[in-house]
């Protein structure tokens, strides 16, 4: 992959990771976590690990977000800390 795009993805990855921890709204955190997973998937593919990238895209960006949403809807949307 082109070096600049790779660097941009890595930077976005870190931004997403920090933002997912910092944001107070858990729904936002779940969405940011999904975005993190998708960027991670791009990184796996650019490293040549296509199978791992595929799994990351399906589990990380897809199903785990749905599970997080389900859990948030049944508990609270605001963090306490």
């Amino acid at each position: 992959m082109i070096q600049e795009i790779n660097a941009a993805i890595l930077l976005l990855l870190m931004v997403c990771a920090v933002a997912a921890l910092q944001v107070r709204d858990l729904m936002g955190a779940a969405i940011l976590f999904g975005a993190y997973s998708f960027l991670m998937c791009l990184q796996w593919v650019s490293l040549g690990a296509v199978d791992v990238g595929f799994t990351e895209a399906t589990i990380g960006a897809g199903v785990s977000s749905a599970l997080f949403f389900a859990a948030i809807f049944r508990t609270t949307r605001r963090t306490k800390d």
Binding site: V50, D51, F54, T55, T58, I59, G62, V63, A66
Partner: peptide, 21 residues
Amino acid sequence: SPGGGFQAGVIFGASYILLAV
């Protein structure tokens, strides 16, 4: 090609989750 049982199961399960949502 890339993929296999685990990914296939996740995609199939996701289709059911999409139906439920």
